[in-house]
Design a protein around this nucleic acid. Structure first.
Lengths: 250, 250
DNA sequence: CGTAGACTTGAGAGTCATCAACGTAAGTGG
DNA sequence: CCACTTACGTTGATGACTCTCAAGTCTACG
């Protein structure tokens, strides 16, 4: 169901509440409900609420906001970032449908980063108190929460590694490709929802460097880019360049 | 109780099992048992086993090992690291008493990094299956697990940021200082259990750069170093240099 | 259209890595 | 006890990767 269809659906009077239930969500196998039985899915649905669509530039939360809930991206994409004392922006991650935001706020009980929609997006809100309570009762939910947090730890660690600009960008593209594929999209052709500047800030590069490496990759027939549209022409070689930079998830 | 005393204690026939129980562990307020009542502490003790002392260079686990348990450092220190396809070592973190190791292995169900003792060390073993089960029953334990994982996520993200060599090293020292202080040691004077090379690999710098920045800090009377022994002479200025590079925990 | 922002491309500079030599401390074996 | 070895750490010179600054191009949007 594309976004146009969703809008038509809602216009006909079906509540977003209903059409977006975990029990019939196409992302259930990637998201928190993974592996739950239908009875447990219903209990999940009992605590999940869905937000109105966010528009590009809307903030889901900001640094210092009280931590009340974890968010699951339902459609569209988000970026999370911080701004340091010198005004430099550090992008912490990009978040695709089925991925969670806000997990780093559990410990300090307030958000330590900002989250902004990169395009029109919808999210599911999981109030943290109810979520942990439910996680106490449903072992499958508990496991999945631990798994997803574990993944975030591992991914952040690989991003922290020491790699060249080419390695970083190759790994970034390969990682995006895998995530798009998992979500049923083409793994070779997709649109970047983030700007060059965002990519650069994420990979700790200058925007100019991203441009230049893209140009080099295109010259070498590894990719074809035109603004935000990108095709991976030689996934194998890109994989080789990406070396051991693991998943490059959130 | 220093390590000599511990050895004497064990020699007298008291089991390490007993003297190391969560219920009378001085690290309980930093570690998983934080905030648990005595009844719950006993249940924790029921699943925790303590290993024989590890010697410097001993590996707790290696890449590819099956994930069976989470480990809590009890004494000494560890480093976790990966080796990439080019043979470069990437240090992921240093782990002090009360901190957990192996959380990044939950998702893939096998260890994605190596963990090695930097000095004589002892650990507590928390079998993951039993730990998650207990986390289902004890909400305080569940919360603390989520908190600690959340912290790891946030810390890894800040390490991933784009900072200069001086900022990184200042933040590293400040972070260590805080962690030592939390554990009852001096926050101004301590021994580095890791080599310059390890520090460099952790901060994505060359060992020579670490040496040079240490020398510069010493010239500016920010620190005094002699081999592994270090004194922080001007914590405030170091803090200023560290800028917004948060905790620098794990 | 015309402006604004994103993106690209070029030239120069700076930080840090690399290479190399040297000094120091700890451990080994004669 | 001392020469030898080895690992670690420091210091210096050089160079490379990437950033910064700057100008120019393109697209989108009002």
């Amino acid at each position: 169901m594309n976004s146009t269809a969703v809008l038509a659906f809602q216009a006909k009077g079906f509540s977003a509440q209903h059409q977006a239930a975990c029990s019939n969500c196409s992302l259930a196998q990637l998201c928190l409900p993974m592996g739950l039985c239908s009875a447990d899915l219903e209990r999940m649905d009992g605590i999940v609420t869905r937000s109105a669509p966010q528009h590009e530039g809307d903030h889901l939360f900001r640094v210092g906001d009280a931590f009340k809930a974890v968010y699951a991206v339902r459609a569209g994409s988000f970026k999370s970032y911080t701004v340091d004392s010198e005004g430099r922006e550090h992008v912490l991650g990009f978040h695709l449908p089925g991925e969670l935001l806000g997990l780093d706020a559990i410990y300090p009980e307030k958000h330590m980063c900002n989250a902004v929609a990169l395009d029109t997006a919808t999210i599911c809100v999981l109030p943290y108190g109810q979520l942990t309570e439910l996680a106490g009762e449903i072992s499958g939910l508990r496991s999945q929460l631990f798994r997803l947090m574990s993944k975030d730890i591992a991914d952040a660690a690989t991003l922290a590694g020491d790699f060249t600009a080419e390695e970083r960008i190759a790994a970034f593209l390969i990682g995006l490709s895998r995530r798009f594929q998992q979500r049923g999209f083409s793994r070779k052709e997709f649109n970047l929802s983030m700007s060059r500047r965002d990519i650069a800030n994420y990979l700790r590069l200058a925007p100019e460097t991203v441009s230049r490496v893209f140009a080099r990759f295109e010259k070498d027939s590894l990719i074809a880019v035109e603004r935000r549209a990108i095709k991976l022409l030689d996934v194998t070689k890109l994989h080789g360049l990406a070396r051991c930079m693991g998943e490059m998830h959130a």
